[in-house]
């Protein structure tokens, strides 16, 4: 009687292919995790260990001196607030105009307007920066954080609208149609029917837009002054001043990017679920 139990040869083969597969997973994930761990390792070691050769991999004992050093020698508190204001306000504006816009474009099938957001995606960031820089000089906004907030709309508004279009196109239209037949205006159907359903889409769009704004370097680098620069610009400035102080540099890098990495883990499913199919990326 033959049962479902495979022969030893087949089992060995299956075992070998499983081991091979595990190895492949390990190989493709390791560059990502190793670079992140190396950043963590550098930030937790003293300067002697950091420039030792051969390198010291595991901090023993780990020290938080680098993080304290970053806050003592730089005004990271100010830069942190700047980054928070810039990505927060630019995302808030993107939500206010982007939710109705995404709804309107999805419902009206206004593909030409969607193409506009795509062209905005193709255009190099510097080509916005030069004219807006001149404009801000003319109207005297330099020296405040507002020019940075306004230029960040170039990133946040298209990303957010793009996410919302995708979201509203996938929302079943039955409920709104029922509302329209019951005599709701288009605005009411949007406000009381579609908007409450759009919450998850808004959350994902907002997180992506905050991340891309938070990560942006070039706008803040050109438009930010001593007190208005954002975190990535502040970290870049540390590089030019502290050549071989790797501990504080890595600590600063980690401080900037840790909030983003944590947010990413939260919306990991949505990112994988195809939001990036259109190539959402700031730039």
């Amino acid at each position: 009687m033959t049962t479902a139990r495979p022969s030893p040869g087949v089992r060995l083969k299956r075992f070998a292919s499983n081991v091979g597969f595990a190895l492949a997973v390990f190989v493709i994930v390791s560059p990502a995790i190793l670079v992140m761990l190396w950043m963590l390792s550098l930030s937790l070691k003293n300067d002697v260990d950091n420039i030792a050769f051969p390198p010291v991999f595991v901090p023993s004992p780990p020290t938080f001196a680098n993080f304290i050093d970053v806050f003592e020698k730089n005004r990271f508190d100010i830069y942190f607030v700047n980054s928070l204001v810039v990505s927060g306000v630019s995302t808030l504006i993107a939500i206010l105009v982007g939710v109705p816009a995404g709804y309107g474009i999805a419902k009206a099938q206004a593909h030409k307007l969607a193409v506009l957001t795509l062209i905005a995606r193709i255009t190099p960031g510097l080509s916005y920066l030069i004219p807006l820089y001149i404009l801000f000089q003319w109207i005297g906004l330099t020296g405040t954080v507002w020019p940075i907030v306004i230029t960040h709309l170039v990133l946040t508004v298209p990303i957010f609208i793009y996410v919302m279009i995708g979201f509203f196109e996938n929302l079943p239209p039955d409920l709104e149609e029922a509302a329209l037949i019951d005599g709701c205006s288009l605005w009411q159907a949007f406000r009381y029917v579609a908007l409450p359903l759009a919450r998850p889409g808004i959350v994902v769009g907002a997180i992506l837009s905050v991340i891309f704004s938070w990560n942006n370097f070039i706008f803040g680098a050109v438009l930010g002054g001593r007190t208005t620069r954002t975190l990535p610009v502040a970290v870049f400035n540390m590089l030019t001043f502290e050549q071989l102080a790797w501990g504080p540099l890595a600590a600063a890098a980690l401080l900037v990017t840790a909030p983003v990495l944590i947010l990413t883990l939260f919306i990991q499913k949505e990112i994988v679920g195809g939001l990036t199919t259109g190539g959402v990326k700031g730039g």
């Binding site: 990502a32 995790i33 190396w38 950043m39 550098l42 990560n215 983003v260």
Partner: peptide, 20 residues
């Protein structure tokens, strides 16, 4: 999730680590 972390990480931070 780990695999997609690099594309979300702050480019300046990434560049700093690679510089070192």
């Amino acid at each position: 999730a780990i695999f997609i972390l690099p594309m979300m990480a702050t480019p300046v931070a990434v560049a700093l680590v690679w510089t070192m």
